[in-house]
């Protein structure tokens, strides 16, 4: 008992430490077990039988699962490209212009963030079944179009949110100066505003990439038999049984997510130190 914690040093008291330990165990133990058992040399049991890469080999030979993985990455990539452009435009629109119906448009752009996923999923199902049937004999990646459209619809409002927050700190005089010195609308945007928005654009891009990669419910309602994404494929596998192959596939996706998140944190740190 060298020194007792000061009154507000709650984190040094044992009940707090126990609580935190318990919560993080609850959050992480299932995921860590899942990752660890992707290397387990046994098909069914949860008892450790030795280290192996077999499940990964099987995974890479499982064409359906690999195709679903490739589909997911392609969809996430294209979704991100479109979402960043649309999201940035919407953010600039809400920040710069005053016009009639602005409030209505602002509300409409916030709607995809709050509407329950299931409602958006069935809306997309109805839309692509009745209004704009997506031809299912298109060549890859155009066959993924319906899913990409649905993903962009729920991703780009998030990009708008992030970029808008960043624009609030922009000093408009900089842009006015550029225009006084003869820059056109486009030049002022490209050379002055865009560099300021860059960190938010990167954060928004990573956000929409993860959201798209993550989505199950909305994709479930828009994907056809030939356009299966990774979560939809895993869903159909999980319904039947727990297999180490799914563990291996999940581990790969978790690692990808962690890498993306590390990149985002690094980017944020850079942009805050640059200021």
């Amino acid at each position: 008992m060298a020194d007792r914690p000061a009154p507000l040093e709650y984190n040094r008291t044992w009940p707090m430490r126990l609580w935190l330990g318990g919560v993080f165990f609850f959050l992480y133990a299932p995921l860590i077990a899942l990752m660890a058992f992707s290397f387990n040399d046994s098909k069914r049991t949860i008892v450790w039988r030795g280290f192996t890469f077999d499940h990964y080999k099987k995974l890479f030979n499982n064409n359906e699962l690999m195709l679903a993985f490739a589909n997911s990455l392609t969809i996430a990539f294209i979704t991100t490209l479109i979402s960043v452009v649309l999201g940035a435009l919407a953010a600039v629109m809400l920040w710069r212009f005053r016009f009639r119906f602005k409030g209505a448009i602002e509300g409409a752009l916030a709607l995809p963030i709050v509407v329950p996923e299931i409602c958006m999923g069935v809306a997309m199902l109805v839309f692509f079944a009745r209004v704009m049937p997506w031809p299912n004999d298109l060549i890859w990646p155009f066959s993924l179009g319906a899913i990409i459209i649905a993903h962009v619809s729920f991703c780009f409002p998030f990009v708008t949110m992030v970029v808008r927050a960043r624009l609030a700190s922009f000093n408009k005089e900089q842009e006015e100066a550029a225009r006084d010195l003869g820059a056109s609308d486009w030049e002022a945007f490209r050379d002055v505003l865009l560099p300021h928005m860059k960190p938010a654009l990167i954060a928004g891009a990573l956000l929409s990439f993860t959201l798209s990669l993550d989505d199950f419910v909305i994709t479930f309602f828009t994907s056809g038999p030939n356009t299966v994404t990774f979560p939809v494929k895993v869903y159909s596998m999980v319904r039947f049984s727990v297999t180490p192959e799914v563990n291996a596939a999940s581990t790969m996706l978790i690692v990808l997510t962690v890498v993306l998140m590390a990149l985002m944190m690094l980017g944020q740190r850079k942009s805050t130190t640059a200021k």
């Binding site: 299932p30 995921l31 899942l34 993860t210 990669l213 993550d214 199950f216 979560p231 895993v234 869903y235 999980v238 727990v242 799914v246 999940s250 996706l253 978790i254 997510t257 993306l260 998140m261």
Partner: peptide, 9 residues
């Protein structure tokens, strides 16, 4: 940030 389906699994 981890996939919802993976966490459920």
């Amino acid at each position: 940030w981890t996939n919802l389906l993976i966490r459920t699994y």
